[in-house]
Every structure is written in structure tokens, then in C-alpha cells.
Write a protein that binds this DNA or RNA. Structure first.
Lengths: 337, 337
DNA sequence: GCTAACGTTGCACACGTATGCAAGAGGTGG
DNA sequence: CCACCTCTTGCATACGTGTGCAACGTTAGC
């Protein structure tokens, strides 16, 4: 039976009365480092336990000007890499006694509209986990002095953020270049994600620089919007060109899977004999037996850990952290020699 | 330069002063249905715009006893189905002017510990999106009268929830049974997820009932823990048995992918000639060309919409909704005849 | 012209917690 | 025994908003 009695929370006053102390004493019991006698603390905790009391985080936030909420902005949870990243961030945040407020944008542009909404919930800070979010986003930092940490996207010079963090995309891409060169590939090509994202640019830069150290040059270059359909289209163009590449590096795994499908079923190529393929992110589907994609792994847990750390550092000291580039790891599977 | 000035929000008082009215008037401007003259509203909005004022959701929540926060509990974001579900829920929630508070549990058991944490943030309601969460969870509903809606998991008789919603797993599984039977399969087998989840039980029930309508019986049955490794092990046992099945239905897609890999590479079977395989959920990897898995699709957006609707209905009327079973859709691809 | 009715506004209080300040308790050293 | 210091506690106030109540001004109706 669902009786609609008014919702009643246990307040610190009730605990205080049961324990025979004042509300202040109760409050101090739940405030680390506050001055409270061991014996009273015990009595209060007893009463709190008995009544099922938990401090009201909303009321506390109003008072302390710290809501304990941290916003996570994500543009594309469909991408398994971002799904894992959001999960890791959530776990990291709740491990520190705070709570993650997740805002998802259907398309990249919609994220700008989300941020004022986030601010009205008084988030202590914001983690932006998208390579594709527009630049204006970070200026809100000025409005309410809410710190922002960028993940997987470098801060521009005029952006004022608490920190930014990403994989060392340049070095990661260079590993693929080395692998291609050392296994005898002579006609490498690259499929970018979105041209205006730092992630894609860095992967291109690292790949090209790596190749040139081996005396190699790109024979083809295309753009695949980071998704399967885009990767398909790019693969068709590259593989149909007069000078067909013998190795393709894609800015993420999803596009690489599309390349594999197109190469096998539409061009009858066998991988890796006729064509080497590599991706980036070490997303789950790439590990499946039918693909077994060579890729570059990012340490997602570490990235989440460092990102939240940057935010807390800002909240405590007001100092912004220097950009962090995490090392990557080559995952060599069956789509390369 | 990051100067560490005290954080300053624009309050309704400042807006009131600029507009030459009282704080109450400002508050009423942002409260739908409140009594306010059109001309004052205009003046207040002008001032608010100018100062960049947004009502403080924390303070409002303290007053109205409605935080505007809705908790989402999820046990396994690694599963792409749940990732998509969480995204859909988040979008649905923020579309109604509320905010989703996401709590992720690494393993299923850890979720119980999360819920008190959630409660301290005064969530208005909780959406539990996991088949594997333990039963005790839902009893917290009584503690603070916080409504819970269960997704993808039926409520037991003694559980007091605002509503529960899931796909019509029985009917969905029956579709697969029909498909197997109508394409001439005679030796069907089933791989369960976790035996004690309603989702897995219903899919088993529907499958078996469907088969019996065609005069067929299971020749094998195993458990795969809903994950790839579990699916692999189950597939090896089933395919290595004396009476080898000619069709396997898995309680989710991830296990079905494992079955495909094992059948092809370890037993040299060709699909679908030697063996039909079907999954459940229509997860993204199953659609990849190398698998092209036949599966059952759930309408995730609709599920999210209805779930949040149930929660709001409870919040407004205090009435619990009757269980909802959403229709499924058969997605026929290349792993069945 | 007077009254009733209505729409609008401000005052004051409530929501549940944190914390500066002063007062009290208890102990120690001279 | 007194003065002083430390530790603990309660009082009072602040955080920013929503809302019942009463007072106000305006208009319509007779």
C-alpha cells in the first residue's frame, strides 16, 4: 500500500535530542577534524545509527558553498571508449565522497546549452570528456569561477582551464608508424576523425612524423568522422584509388573496423597479408576474434584518476595543473604483420 | 592568472535590487504558475539577464524538499546495452529540467553500499538499471520514501517499488524459438545469463515455451554469466557434447559473439549452415559485418521515457504504476537461416 | 461614491546544515 | 588555592530560495 505521507528525513535535531546534545555537536561528529569529545561522538553515532540519520548533502552544500557535485559532460556515449571513461570517472568521483552529475549531449553542438543547466546545480567543477565539444564551453569558467578539466582534448592558449589531460597521442601514433615500417609496409595511409579536434590532429602528426623517420610518406589521407559509416566511405575511397595503400591507420577503432569490413568483403583483400590495419583506443569490439585489431591502448583508469585529482587540486589551492600526456601502450594483434 | 577570489554567485537579492522589487518577486518569476504582473516579470528578467542570474537549484531543493536530482544505479557499464540505456535515461531526465546522478558499481554486490550515499544527496527518486542487483536494495524505499523504478528486472511480490519496466522477454525469446523451428532446426540449446535474474529466467521460459509449441525440446542448457568468457566456456561444453545442438540462443549478445567465435575457430563449424546462433539486446558489435548476429531489439528510448514517467507519476500522485512489458522486435541477420 | 473582489507585492519564516564566538568544564603548575 | 590554558559545548547566525499571509492598489458593480 502506497500511503502518501509527507516525506520525512531524519534531521540532526532529532539525533541531537535522542543523544541529549545540541545540533552543533551532531554536525561536528560528521565533520572531519572538528573538536568533539570521544565519548559524545560515540553517543551521537549510536543515536544516528538508531534513527538511520545521514547528513543532508544539499543543506550542507548550501552552507559550505561546496555542493559535492561534479559535472561530467559527454557528447557521445555510443562510442565505447567514452562509455568506459565516464564509468571510470564516476567511480573515481564517488570514491572521494562526491557525486557525479552526468550531462549527455546528443550531438556535439548541444553541449553548450547544457552547461548553464549544470551550473544551476552548483557543481564544484566540470569534467569535459569529448574531443568534439565547441570551444566556447570553457569560457564559462570565468562566469562563476567553476573549474573545468578537459579530457582527451588539449586546451587552447586563450582557454582558462584547471587542467587538461589526454593520452600521448603523438607518441601512440608513432608506435603504429614504426610497426608499419618495420614490417615492410611502403604505402601507408591515414583516416582522420574530425579535422578540428586536437586528438585527431595529434594522431596525424605523430603518425606522419614517425613515418618520415623511416623515409616514408603518406600515399593517402581521408576523414571518417570517428564513426563506422564515415570509416566505410573513407576506406572505399582510399582502397579504390590508383595507388592503393598497403597499411591504414585510423584515428579510432570504430573506423578501423569499418576499414576491415570494406577491405575484406568489397575488395577481397586478406588482412594482414595484403593490407595492415590499426586503430586507436583499444575499444572492446576490436578484441573480438573475428577482428583482432591492432591498436593503441589508453590507460583509462589512470586518466580518470588524474583528471579528478586536477580538479581537487584546483579546489584546494586554486592552482591550475600543467597539461598531462599519459603514455600509451601498443596492442599488437592480428591485423598487422 | 588564476586569482583565488571567493566564489560569488549572483543571488536573487541582487537581481531584486537592480529591478527595484523584492526577492519574492524574483522568485515568483522563476516559479511557473506564480502570481506576477507581466510588466514586473519583464523588468526582473531584464535584470536577471544582465547579471547572468540563474536560480540556485541547491537552495531551491532545500526549501521545496525536491532536489531535482534523480539517481541512476548501474552495475555494468561495460555492457554496451546498459551504456546506451544510461545515456537515454540521462537525456530523458535532463529534458525534464532535472539532473541525473549516476552511481556505478564495479561488481554487482557493491551497489547496496552505494544507495545510502545516493540518499544523502536527497535524490527525488532512483532508477535501478541492472538485472543483477541484489534484492535488499529496494527496501530502502521505505526508509525515506524515495521511489525506485526497476529497469530490466521485475519486482518481486514483497518489493515495494514505484514501478518496474522491462522488455517483453518472454515474447522476444519466443520469436527466436519460432525462427529456429521454422527454419528446420531440431536440436536447440540455451545459454542463460545468471540464473537468479528475472531477465534470464524470462528469456529461458519464453524460448522453451515457444519451442514446445513446435514440438521441440532443449538438447542442451548452460550458464554464461552474461559475459564473453562465460559464453566461451558454455559454448565449448555445449558444442563438445555428444548430442551437438544445431541452434543456440543466448540470453544476451555478448555471449552469442563468443559462441560464434568458438564455433568457427575451435569447431570449424560454418554459421548458419551447421549452426544457428541468436542473441538478445541488439548491441552494437553484433551488427558488425563479421558477425551480423540475429538478435532481439529492445526500444531503449521508449524504456527510458516510460521509466522516468513512472517516477514522475509517483512523485505527483504517490501512485505506483503497474509493471510494463515493452514489445520487442526481431532483427534477422546472417547467423540464422 | 462606496464596497467587494481581485490581482499583485512584500514581509517573515522555514528548509537542514556549518561555524565563529563565548562560556563552561576540567586539569595543571605555581 | 588561584590563575591559566586546553578541550568541549551551545548559541546564534548565515547560506539562497519558496511560500503563506496580510496589506496594498486597482477596478468593477450597484
Amino acid at each position: 500500500m502506497t500511503d502518501l505521507g509527507k516525506r520525512r528525513w531524519v534531521t540532526s535535531l532529532e539525533v541531537a535530542q535522542l543523544a541529549g546534545v545540541s545540533r552543533s555537536a551532531v554536525s561536528r561528529c560528521f565533520t572531519p577534524g572538528a573538536s568533539i569529545a570521544e565519548e559524545t561522538r560515540w553517543r551521537v553515532m549510536e543515536a544516528a545509527e538508531q534513527l538511520g540519520y545521514r547528513p543532508n548533502a544539499i543543506a550542507r552544500g548550501l552552507n559550505t558553498q561546496r555542493s559535492g557535485l561534479i559535472g561530467i559532460v559527454v557528447a557521445d556515449v555510443g562510442n565505447p571508449f567514452y562509455a568506459r571513461l565516464v564509468e571510470a570517472l564516476a567511480i573515481e568521483i564517488q570514491g572521494r565522497g562526491k557525486a557525479p552529475l552526468v550531462f549527455a549531449a546528443k550531438e556535439a553542438g548541444a553541449a553548450d546549452a547544457l552547461l548553464p543547466e549544470l551550473l544551476s546545480f552548483q557543481v564544484d567543477g566540470v569534467l569535459v570528456t569529448s574531443a568534439t565539444l565547441s570551444l566556447r564551453v570553457t569560457r564559462l569558467y570565468d562566469a562563476a569561477r567553476t573549474p573545468i578539466v578537459l579530457l582527451d582534448r588539449m586546451a587552447e592558449d586563450d582557454e582558462d582551464v584547471a587542467g587538461d589531460i589526454s593520452a600521448d597521442n603523438v607518441a601512440g601514433a608513432a608506435m603504429i608508424a614504426d610497426l608499419f615500417a618495420e614490417t615492410g609496409r611502403r604505402r601507408p595511409a591515414f583516416i582522420a576523425g574530425l579535422e578540428n579536434t586536437s586528438t585527431s590532429r595529434d594522431r596525424a602528426t605523430g603518425f606522419i612524423a614517425g613515418l618520415s623517420r623511416h623515409g616514408l610518406d603518406l600515399v593517402g589521407r581521408d576523414v571518417g568522422q570517428y564513426d563506422y559509416a564515415g570509416g566505410q566511405a573513407a576506406a572505399r575511397r582510399l582502397l579504390g584509388a590508383s595507388e592503393r595503400p598497403d597499411a591504414i591507420f585510423c584515428a579510432n577503432d570504430e573506423m578501423a573496423l569499418a576499414v576491415l569490413d570494406v577491405a575484406r568483403s568489397e575488395f577481397g583483400l586478406s588482412v594482414p597479408q595484403d593490407l595492415s590495419v590499426a586503430g586507436f583506443d583499444n575499444a572492446a569490439p576490436g578484441a573480438l576474434a573475428a577482428y583482432s585489431l591492432t591498436t593503441v591502448d589508453q590507460d583509462i583508469e589512470r586518466m580518470a584518476h588524474e583528471a579528478v585529482g586536477m580538479l581537487e587540486r584546483w579546489l584546494q589551492t586554486g592552482r591550475q595543473s600543467s597539461p598531462l600526456r599519459l603514455p600509451c601502450r601498443l596492442v599488437r594483434r592480428a591485423t598487422t604483420l
